[in-house]
Amino acid sequence: MKTLAAALLPLVLLAGCGGGGNEAPTAPANSVAAVAAPAGQDWSQTVSTTEGGGYVMGNPDAPLKLLEWGSRLCPTCGAFANAGMRPLIDNYVKSGKVSYEFREFLVHGAPDFAPALIGRCAGTQPFFPMLEEMFAAQPTVLPKMEDAGQFQQTIQDQPPGRQFTAWAEKLGFIDFAKQRGLPEAQVRACLTDQKAIDALVKYMDDGAKAGVTGTPSFFLNGKKLDAVSWQQVEQALKNAGA
């Protein structure tokens, strides 16, 4: 299992974010049938945690299972979310054909822990709205990363929870969470929750073992896609019959 020190160091800004995505076209598969959601609901309201440490939205028995390993500070992940989250949910998840799971892969080390811990702090149902809004906020957050190496040096002797709290303060995520109804005391408790921190380190190790080398990394029914953009992911879904 990857140690916490290994997860925090080195701090490589934006490394492993993006790249690849030249998936060769394949012949369309047989069309997958839509599945009606329970009465009075739509499948996007069905959200649960997974054994692999992710959060999944949609029909639990969807024939097409899309998994994204991502970082909330990754611009390429943000581009995917801003272009693709709405059509993915509206056109594919709500049909019952596709479920969508997100797992954290913290390519930037310490800075990534702050939004990941806060994004999981509110519980299951708010997970995906918070995720989408964090990606939408990247234009105001990412400029604050410009001196990240220097800032990390000033806090590197502090315990991990204190480092993550310092990053949350610097990047504006504590105010971000408060504006969405989370009490500040709860947010700060989540940032220093050692059990949650250890779990994120384990999930990263699991991702590396599964072949994740950067973000975003997409898997469809367990097979890694050579895709990073919504256009490429959507084509893969269509090729699979969605």
Rank of each mutant, 00 (worst) to 15 (best):
Q163A: 05
P111T: 01
F173W: 00
A116P: 08
I174G: 03
W167G: 00
R162I: 06
A137M: 10
P115H: 03
Q150G: 14
E133N: 11
T140A: 14
L106A: 01
Q138S: 11
I174E: 05
F113S: 05
G109N: 03
G161L: 13
T140F: 02
Q125F: 05
D112G: 10
V107S: 09
D112F: 01
M130W: 14
Q152H: 14
F135Q: 15
D175M: 05
F127N: 09
M130G: 03
E146N: 13
E132Y: 07
P159Q: 08
E132D: 15
Q125V: 15
G172P: 02
L171H: 05
A168V: 04
E169H: 01
F151T: 11
Q138T: 07
E132C: 01
F113I: 05
V141G: 11
A110F: 03
Q153N: 14
P160I: 09
A166E: 12
P111Q: 02
R162W: 02
L131Q: 10
V107I: 14
W167T: 03
Q153S: 13
E146C: 01
T140M: 08
D147H: 03
T154V: 06
G119D: 12
R162V: 12
T140H: 07
A136C: 02
M130Y: 13
E169F: 00
L142R: 08
D147W: 05
A148F: 07
R120M: 13
A116G: 09
G109E: 01
P115C: 04
L171E: 06
G119L: 12
D147A: 15
A116R: 01
A166D: 10
H108L: 02
L106I: 01
A168D: 07
P126A: 13
Q152R: 05
F176S: 07
G119F: 08
H108I: 00
T140P: 00
E133A: 15
Q138K: 09
P143M: 06
P129W: 02
P111K: 02
F113V: 04
F127C: 13
T154W: 00
L131P: 03
A148V: 11
Q125K: 14
P111H: 06
P115M: 02
Q163R: 06
I155V: 15
G119H: 08
I155A: 09
M130V: 15
Q153D: 14
A148M: 06
E132I: 07
F164M: 12
P129G: 09
R120G: 06
A110I: 00
M134E: 11
